[in-house]
Nucleic acid binder design. Structure first.
Lengths: 209, 209
DNA sequence: CGCCAATCTGAACGCCGTCAAGATAATCTT
DNA sequence: AAGATTATCTTGACGGCGTTCAGATTGGCG
């Protein structure tokens, strides 16, 4: 109930673009990024290797579409984390933890997202207009006691984003395993790291706990 | 004076392993990671496509060797930055800036370094014994007023490393260009971001400037 | 119904990583 | 010094990849 369009290959297939994207995501989850070839995607969707070229000019363009979905889902994950609101620094830590957990739970998708960004030397513009990036900025803004300039806000957001991404890329590294155990699990480890960043100290009200 | 062993192909070539590594690095610098195929490396070194298999069991093993050199050079870059010593927070910022500048100046090499790490879900162990990683830890340790537990030190190092890596991967993103101009250049931008991390607040003496 | 444009297939190109068989040269043994 | 052993390199092949192109098929529109 999942592989290809087994049921009597329709004439023109209906919606190949969507089917290709879903096939790509399935391969990503199942076999990882290394197994994600255009030919494999076409195979999984039940079409010939050349068929995708009528919907995407490139392999890269297909991956872009997959990445686009990924950014949307990351956005949703951060929204959810922001819904459960705590105060100031905790709220930022929660956001960071949610970000890294998304990357940990969708490693292949996360990799595709950033591979696409690297290839164009930029994060997708959508992020800055109403996406995950501005959720971080808004959260920082809401918690800065009004004493944050526009530039400080931007810099703090960049700092937060970079820290989150760096941790996201390393969270599964085996060297951290002993520390995770020591601190009582992966999420506790994440919180501890984020707190050691002394994150956004310049912008967010500090409670000297 | 650089391409292959043009001078009368010697019988057995002498030191192919080294030649292959250098060929790989040259291709990386010249044409980027996408052009780095084993066959291209062999071509550049002036040998047949199968020759490398007598020195590396895999393409991955060749890349490992290249990455190994990269980590060594990063180590050297951080050492140099640590030599020009300033006080506490500045010293840490300098280390971070040096790290990101290394990545910016050797983008393809840096990518190979982390690609190898990702494939094995771990940073090279050498880093923790006497490499770049422990330079960061030592610097933090030296500047913590003695009130840093072993665990705090480790967490602060991880936090610093992740932040550096995240920034290193994004430093060339076009969205940051306006901010760089506004702050008077890329290095000023880097310093500003690092300072907004409020980095290592838990561990390093804070001067309330 | 007939035509056009969109969609899909089949076969091909050049590239890739890798391997097995054979040639060649350095090294070791005596 | 000569022969045997081993390390090194080449040739040729395999399957898989991204991509293209000519031709078949089909849906939509007049």
């Amino acid at each position: 109930m999942s592989t290809a369009t087994v049921e009597s290959r329709p004439y023109h297939h209906g919606d190949l673009s969507r089917a290709l994207i879903e096939a790509a995501r399935k391969i990503l989850e199942t076999d990882g990024p290394a197994a994600l070839s255009l030919r494999a995607v076409a195979r999984e969707a039940g079409v010939s290797p050349a068929a995708p070229y009528h919907h995407f000019k490139d392999k890269a363009e297909l991956l872009d579409a997959v990445a686009h979905e990924g950014w949307h889902e990351l956005d949703a994950a951060l929204s959810k984390a922001r819904g459960e609101n705590n105060a100031a620094r905790d709220q930022m830590t929660n956001l960071g933890v949610a970000y890294v957990c998304f990357a940990r739970d969708n490693p292949a998708l996360y990799r595709v997202m950033y591979d696409c960004s690297r290839d164009r030397d930029a994060l997708p513009d959508q992020l800055k207009d109403d996406g995950a990036y501005c959720q971080v900025r808004d959260t920082i803004g809401e918690n800065s006691g009004g004493r944050a300039t526009e530039i400080d806000l931007e810099l703090a957001t960049i700092a937060a984003w970079c820290a989150g991404h760096g941790l996201a890329e390393m969270i599964s590294f085996k060297q951290f395993a002993p520390l995770k155990d020591l601190l009582g699990g992966e999420e506790a480890f994440l919180r501890a790291v984020f707190e050691h960043l002394g994150m956004f100290a310049k912008v967010i009200d500090q409670d000297p706990a």
